[in-house]
Structures are given as C-alpha cells and as structure tokens.
Computed example of a mutant assay.
Amino acid sequence: MTLVQTHKDVENLTLTFTTEFEADVERVWQVWEDPRQLERWWGPPTWPATFDTYDFSPGGNARYFMTGPDGNKEHGWWKITAIDAPNRLEFEDGFADKNGDPVDVTDVTRCVVTFEPSGSGTRMTSVTTFRSAEQLEEMSKMGMEEGMTQALGQIDGILAETSVSR
C-alpha cells in the first residue's frame, strides 16, 4: 500500500485517507464486501476486529468489536447508507454497547469510500465527516489517524493472496 495522503480538515470537519493498491478495483472492493477479509484489517494490528453482524446492502447494519492487547473489547456499529459496487460505499459509524447497540445515535461519523483505477492498481479514498470540530478532535486524540493508517497497511497482505474465501 502506498499511503498517498492523509488530510485533516478542521474547517470542513473531515479526515481523508488516500491509498493506492496494486490490485484492480473489484479486488480492493472485496476487502470491504467480505466480512472475513474486513476483519483482518479493520482496526490496527493490536486491536483486531470481529464482525458478528454484517448486512452489506443499502440500509444494512454491521455490528463489530475490536479486541485490545489486554482483552478489552470496544464495540462499534455501521449503518450502510449507499453502495455503488465496486465504486463507492457510504456508511455511518458509531460506538456501541456490549450488545452492539448504538450508545448515542447522534454521536456518529459518516464515511464515504471511493475506488478508482489508478495506474496499475486502485486508488481508494476514504473521507470521514464529523458532526463537530470537537468530535474530530476527540477522535484524533483517541488515535484515529494512527490507527487507520496501521489498519490500511494490513490490506496489501490480504490482496496478495491468490485464493479468496467468500
């Protein structure tokens, strides 16, 4: 993976990650579409994710938790708002309780991920929009930028595999 750019824009309340992969768009799309592949990279290496609900369709829900090095589990949820396979994915993301239910449905971020051919591979751009500058700053203090960079760095290994279990 080549991390082309990370850009935090406080004025527009966004955090953008632009990456390039040496795989075609359809293959990069699969690391989002297949929950078993998604689990292998969603979260930094020391906080792997487990998706116990994953309805990858417009209006679908996902429930997951990330397990820290000490065994502590942090839960999250997604509401998938739009899919244009294999070009665009949009979802809301928030914190959840231990049952996977949203803690605060107003404390969400909105994420738009786009995929486009680029040279010999794919450019993937992920733009997260925050509800306020305070939310953006809080998530930054929690290590969102570093964690997402580490998470994205795990995708190359998955893409390099010749057989894809689905």
Rank of each mutant, 00 (worst) to 15 (best):
D52H: 15
Y54R: 02
F51C: 09
L13N: 04
S126M: 13
A133T: 13
M124L: 02
Q150I: 00
Q150S: 08
E138M: 13
P35T: 14
T122F: 04
P69I: 10
D107F: 06
F51H: 15
D156C: 12
T19M: 05
W29F: 08
D55E: 11
A62N: 11
G76H: 01
N12T: 12
S163K: 14
D104R: 00
W29Q: 03
S118D: 09
G76C: 07
T19V: 06
S163Q: 13
E145V: 08
D70I: 08
E134D: 13
G68H: 00
T149G: 07
G71Y: 01
T128I: 15
R131K: 15
T19E: 03
K8H: 02
T50G: 09
T67M: 00
A49Y: 12
G43D: 01
T125K: 13
E33D: 10
E116N: 10
F56Q: 09
M139Q: 03
G100S: 05
N72F: 09
S120Q: 06
P44W: 03
D156S: 13
Q154E: 05
F65T: 01
V108S: 00
T19W: 04
A85F: 05
E74N: 07
M66S: 04
H75Q: 05
F95N: 01
E26V: 13
S120V: 05
R40H: 10
Y54V: 06
D107Q: 08
R110M: 08
D9L: 14
A23V: 11
D107R: 06
T114C: 10
M142C: 01
T53G: 05
D34N: 15
R88D: 06
T46S: 09
D34P: 08
T46H: 14
W47K: 00
V4S: 01
C111D: 07
G119W: 04
A49K: 10
G71Q: 01
E145I: 06
W78F: 14
Q150K: 11
E134R: 09
S132L: 13
N99E: 11
L89P: 08
M1S: 06
W78M: 15
M1C: 12
T6F: 03
L89R: 01
G71I: 00
F95K: 00
G59S: 01
P48R: 09
G147R: 08
D55M: 01
T129S: 10
P44E: 09
Y54G: 02
T106N: 06
R166P: 03
T162N: 14
R166S: 13
G94L: 08
V108K: 06
E146L: 07
Q37R: 11
A160D: 14
T109H: 02
R36D: 15
Q150V: 01
D70M: 04
T16I: 04
T50M: 12
I155F: 15
A96N: 04
E39N: 15
P45M: 12
D55Q: 03
V105K: 14
T18H: 00
R27T: 14
E92H: 10
W29T: 02
P69N: 13
G60C: 10
R63L: 06
N99Y: 11
V108M: 04
T14Q: 04
E33T: 07
D97Y: 00
P102S: 07
A85H: 07
L159F: 15
M142L: 10
D34W: 12
P58T: 05
M144C: 02
K79T: 12
R63Q: 11
D52A: 12
E137S: 06
T149I: 15
N87M: 07
